[in-house]
Amino acid sequence: MTACCQTTNGQTTENAPAREARTYRPAVDVLETADNLTLVADVPGARAESIDVRVEEGILTIRAEVPQRDTGANAQWRLREYGVGAWERSFRLGDDVDSSRIDAAYRDGVLTLTLPKAEHARPRKIEVRSN
């Protein structure tokens, strides 16, 4: 975890390109069903191929690059609120999630991850036998 302390070097802020370097934190919902955890994130303006979902050392990271919009020649900005740059968010996974079977789908600006529960974390119905 030494990397955590190297991130703040003065250069980063000085050399950062004005807008492109911004990283936003997408709003997420996390829902649980008997078999899965579902993570739903709003990442408007991304493309499915530019979304990166990975699990490293138990950390699930979703990252989406939002491409620069094609502006007309001589275009002038009147209002800029909608962020361009990257969306990024990380979650620590418990060992009750089967990280090898995570499914990701992107539609209408919403990324939906389905995280199946590990076998041992699933609800199990125990049959009651009668003699």
Partner: peptide, 29 residues
């Protein structure tokens, strides 16, 4: 079930533009 927001960006830092969590919080703010 555990799916806990993780903020230690160091663990997933990219080589090109290392950014601290403070920078990111500033952007959000």
């Amino acid at each position: 079930m555990s799916l806990i927001p993780w903020r230690n960006r160091g663990a997933i830092s990219r080589s090109d533009q290392p950014r601290s969590i403070i920078d990111v919080m500033h952007d959000d703010l």
